[in-house]
Amino acid sequence: MEHTDEAALTLMALGDPPSPDVTQHLLACSRCRQELQALRRVAAHMRAPSPTDGDLLEPPADLWDAIADELNLSTPDAERTAAPGTPPFSLRSRDAIAPGRRRRLARFTIGLAACAALLGAAAGSAVTWWATQSTTAAPSAEEGNRLRSLQANSAGYASLSDSDGHRTLEITVKGLPSTAGYFEVWLMDRTHTKLISMGVLGPDGHATLPVPGNVDLREYSEVDVSVQPYNGKPDHSGDSVVRGPYAG
Rank of each mutant, 00 (worst) to 15 (best):
His192Ala: 14
Ala78Pro: 02
Thr179Ser: 02
Ala122Asn: 02
Pro177Phe: 00
Ala96Leu: 12
Thr81Gly: 03
Arg102Val: 00
Thr128Pro: 01
Thr179Met: 02
Leu147Asp: 08
Cys115Ile: 08
Tyr157Ser: 01
Gly175Lys: 02
Leu56Met: 10
Ile171Phe: 01
Asn145Thr: 14
Gly124Ala: 02
Val185Asn: 01
Ala180Phe: 06
His166Ile: 13
Ser74Gly: 05
Ala117Lys: 00
Phe89His: 13
Arg94Asp: 13
Thr132Glu: 05
Ala138Phe: 12
Gly100Arg: 15
Ile97Leu: 14
Gly144Val: 12
Trp129Lys: 12
Ala141Gly: 11
Ser149Phe: 03
Pro76Glu: 04
Leu147Gln: 04
Ala138Asp: 12
Thr128Ser: 03
Ala83Ser: 11
Thr128Val: 10
Leu160Asp: 01
Gln151Thr: 07
Glu58Gly: 08
Arg92Ala: 05
Glu143Thr: 13
Ser161Val: 11
Leu112Glu: 11
Val127Tyr: 06
Pro87Gly: 07
Asp55Tyr: 09
Leu91Phe: 12
Asp55Trp: 07
Leu63Gly: 10
Leu112Pro: 06
Gly175Glu: 03
Ser154Gly: 07
Pro76Met: 01
Ile97Pro: 07
Arg104His: 11
Asp69Arg: 13
Asp69Val: 01
Arg146Ala: 09
Asp162Ala: 07
Phe183Gln: 00
Thr75His: 06
Asn153Phe: 11
Ala117Gln: 03
Trp130Gly: 04
Thr136Asn: 04
Asn153Glu: 14
Asn153Cys: 06
Ala123Cys: 12
Ala126Asp: 03
Phe89Asn: 15
Asp95Thr: 11
Asp95Leu: 15
Trp64Gly: 05
Ala114Asp: 07
Ser197Met: 05
Ala158Thr: 01
Pro99His: 09
Lys194Asp: 10
Ala131Ser: 12
Leu147Ser: 04
Ala126His: 09
Asp162Glu: 08
Ser93Trp: 13
Ser159Cys: 09
Pro99Ser: 05
Asp164Asn: 07
Pro76Gly: 07
Phe183Tyr: 04
Pro139Lys: 06
Glu58Pro: 13
Pro88Arg: 02
Thr86Ala: 07
Asp164Leu: 10
Tyr157Leu: 00
Arg102Asp: 02
Pro84Gln: 06
Arg92Asn: 06
Ser197Asn: 09
Gln133Met: 15
Thr191Glu: 15
Ser159Gly: 09
His166Val: 13
Ala83Lys: 07
Ala126Phe: 05
Leu150Trp: 12
Met188Glu: 11
Gly144His: 10
Val127Ser: 09
Ala68Lys: 02
Ala78Phe: 00
Trp129Arg: 10
Leu71Ala: 08
Ile110Ala: 05
Ser140Gln: 14
Ala123His: 03
Gly111Phe: 12
Leu91Cys: 09
Leu118His: 03
Thr128Leu: 03
Met198Gln: 05
Arg146Ser: 14
